[in-house]
């Protein structure tokens, strides 16, 4: 990865605390175009908090956020962040359980649909054309993720692994510039993990999306990611390629504890 290029996303010196707890304490991160970047760290390190800040769900107490070279206000509505081109999946499934698979993915395209209220109600002309156009895009994603057979099933009934895949599809549907994945493989068996890893790699290589992900499975992280940042108790303790991270003593300490002094 060429470190000289302008980062797609740069967060600088982010501080946020909830009550007395300092969740993030001056963390800076960059995500470069075209890479798969991982944020790892023990539970409670502030990884999901970081994603929530990037999405606009939380407003940090202090810090700066740059996207595509321009600074965005710290306080921003999540749907406006989505409009900028940042999409996201969630740690605990956050699908719309009352809807079919294709409808779920279709919601992901909401920022791209503009037909007005009355035209939607009459369902004639622009509105119908738009629906069909976007349905085609959704079908492409369904095809890409190999979920054709569950297209019309309510997502609440699907097995966990498939639900995760639908959620990925929903995030892809907005054609984001930056895709944030919060533990895409949590709670999966080996086979499902391999599937998702393949889809993540395909997304990165075939479609060319930039991806930042949080994951606990070190094997997967080391295999598929270009760069890794390690958080611990709200501080960034290391950043680098998988090889550098593997041999970093601070990381080993955070994960395994300090070697006892004899």
């Amino acid at each position: 990865m060429n470190q000289k290029t302008e980062p797609l996303l740069r967060v600088e010196d982010i501080h946020i605390s909830f009550g007395g707890l300092k969740a993030l304490n001056g963390v800076s991160l960059e995500v470069y175009p075209g890479e798969i970047m991982a944020i790892i760290g023990p539970n409670g390190a502030g990884k999901t908090t970081m994603l929530n800040i990037i999405n606009g769900v939380y407003t940090p107490d202090q810090g700066r956020i740059f996207f595509e070279g321009t600074e965005r206000p710290l306080k921003m509505k999540p749907h406006n962040v989505a409009a900028m081109g940042i999409s996201r999946t969630f740690q605990n499934l956050a699908l719309f359980k009352g809807m079919d698979t294709w409808c779920n993915i279709m919601v992901g395209r909401t920022q791209k649909m503009h037909s007005n209220f009355f035209s939607q109600g009459v369902y004639w002309g622009t509105s119908q054309k738009e629906e069909i156009e976007h349905r085609e895009a959704v079908e492409w994603i369904i095809d890409f993720l190999e979920i054709e057979n569950i297209r019309k099933q309510p997502v609440g009934m699907l097995p966990y692994g498939l639900q995760k895949r639908v959620e990925l599809g929903r995030a892809l549907a907005s054609e984001p510039k930056l895709l944030l994945l919060d533990e895409p493989m949590a709670g999966m068996n080996l086979e499902e993990k391999e599937d998702i890893a393949r889809f993540i790699l395909d997304t990165n290589e075939e479609i060319g999306y930039t991806i930042a992900l949080i994951e606990h499975d070190m094997g997967v992280v080391m295999d598929i990611c270009d760069r890794i940042a390690v958080l611990d108790f709200g501080n960034k303790i290391a950043e680098g390629t998988p090889e550098e991270i593997k041999s970093n003593p601070k990381v080993i300490k955070a994960y395994l504890g300090e070697a006892e002094q004899a």
Binding site: H79, A82, R88, A94, V107, Q111
Partner: peptide, 20 residues
């Protein structure tokens, strides 16, 4: 799309907002 947005809000409002 309006109905899908409504149902998205009903089922999971935070996710709906993050999705756009």
């Amino acid at each position: 799309q309006l109905g899908r947005n409504w149902m998205a809000i009903r089922d999971m409002d935070v996710a709906a907002e993050v999705i756009g």
